[in-house]
Amino acid sequence: MMNEFFTFLTQNKADGGLVIFLMLFSLGIALFQTVIFSGLFNFKFSNWLFFVLCPLLVGLSFLVDNTYPFAVILFLFVSVFLFGIIGMIYSGIRSSKEEKAEREKFNRIHNIQKTPLKDKLLGFFVLVCMLAAFYWLAETENLKLLFLIIPGFILVSSIFFPSGKSKFFRMQSILPTSKVDAIAMGLVEIEGELEEIEPIISPYFNKPCIGYSYKIEKESPRDDDGRTTYSTIFSEVKTGKFKIKDETGSVTVDGEGLSYYFDRIDNQSGGKTRYTETYLKSNDYMLLIGYAESDNGNVIITKGISDNVFGVAVPRNISFRNKYKPLLDSFLATLFFISLILIYIILN
């Protein structure tokens, strides 16, 4: 079979004019080969190498036998696709290794622990269950039930597994605001100015502060409208000891584990990788919820047990939220139940 194919390629003879044309044609092939070997394989060589090598192969083949140039051109042409496919596979493997090494270096710098194996297995188990449920609904021709299952799942998760922010604002709506000189032991809400005790230095901009929220983001591909978006690859919140004071006095706060429930950017820079810092500073007026306990006869506010609400927010933002949140909740609840009724009607 190969002999027949080679005979077919060499049955036509090339003359001098045709060889010159084939040599010029090979320059186009050389352009693709240069891009493949320099871009995909990341080889270092002179840019003119293939522009000399390809025409030279065609010319030498003509000198050996005037029936060979067609076979050489075909070989060069096929090599573009062959090395292109191999190069894409190689480039993908190399990029994956480089990205993994860069990620591991990043994790070491920021002391990010690997995801525990049990968490990976749990995530895999949940994914398998979801795919199995979807397959079962498709097999039983009950995919329409997803219109009831998905809203129900969202409602149940929001009720029984609220986010830290939801828990904070829910607790804020229940707790009365205490004065510093009348703090009772237990979960408390205090409003006042912050006062620095143990300043800490922010990791990127090196700003002294009471505490900081630090975030690193990577630029994502532009959306259909050409807008640039970012995805967070690392975040950290760290707070030292500080005081919060009102007109009746001040109380010490151990800021370890404190969460920030306000949107403010104090420093930001970067291009493809963006660095953002938000600070807690002296004289910031904040509302704080934490656990008050006795420390050698002195009151100190800490996180307490791990499930306790412990965070700060801007009081004026909370006032605005408290004013309009009930209206929004009523609207969303009404919309939810109307949607369920419409879905029930459609399904039946």
Rank of each mutant, 00 (worst) to 15 (best):
S26N: 07
I201R: 07
G255S: 09
E98C: 00
T334D: 07
K303P: 01
L117C: 00
F106N: 13
F336D: 11
L347W: 02
K245G: 02
F6K: 15
R222V: 15
N42G: 09
G270A: 04
V188M: 06
A184W: 01
K218Q: 15
Y279S: 01
Y230D: 08
I159K: 08
I233Q: 09
F21W: 13
F205V: 02
I210H: 12
I150E: 11
L146G: 10
N42D: 14
S91Y: 01
L122W: 13
L332V: 14
K272H: 04
P199R: 06
P176G: 01
R94H: 14
F6T: 15
P176W: 06
G240W: 04
L145Y: 15
K120L: 15
A101E: 04
K241D: 09
F62M: 00
S91I: 00
T273S: 02
F320C: 11
Y344F: 12
M171A: 10
L27H: 12
G84C: 10
L24K: 06
V64C: 07
P326E: 03
P208Y: 06
A133E: 12
D223S: 11
A292T: 01
G240I: 06
I343A: 13
M2Q: 07
K245R: 01
G226W: 05
Y291M: 06
V78P: 14
K238P: 03
G226F: 08
E191K: 05
I233A: 00
I109P: 02
S306E: 03
R170K: 14
Y275K: 03
M185H: 04
E247S: 09
G226M: 09
I343Y: 10
I301F: 02
G152M: 15
K144G: 09
Y261P: 09
I305G: 10
R264D: 08
T278G: 00
K215L: 08
A182S: 11
S178V: 06
R264P: 06
G92W: 04
S250N: 05
L53W: 01
E256P: 06
R108P: 12
K100T: 10
R274K: 13
N296A: 13
Y212A: 01
I233M: 03
A182G: 08
D225A: 15
I210Q: 09
L24G: 14
Y291G: 03
V64A: 14
L143P: 12
P55T: 02
E236D: 07
S231C: 00
D181V: 03
L137P: 13
F168L: 11
I345C: 04
F37Y: 14
P69I: 05
S38D: 11
Y261K: 02
N3D: 10
S330F: 13
L117Q: 06
R264C: 10
S163H: 12
K97R: 12
S306A: 09
H110W: 14
S91G: 00
I244M: 04
E247A: 04
R103F: 13
L145F: 14
F337M: 01
L155M: 13
F161R: 06
E4A: 11
R316C: 08
G297L: 08
F51E: 00
S79Y: 15
R274F: 15
L332E: 13
L18V: 12
T232E: 13
S282E: 09
I210R: 05
R222Y: 12
G92Q: 05
I109V: 11
K241L: 04
S38M: 07
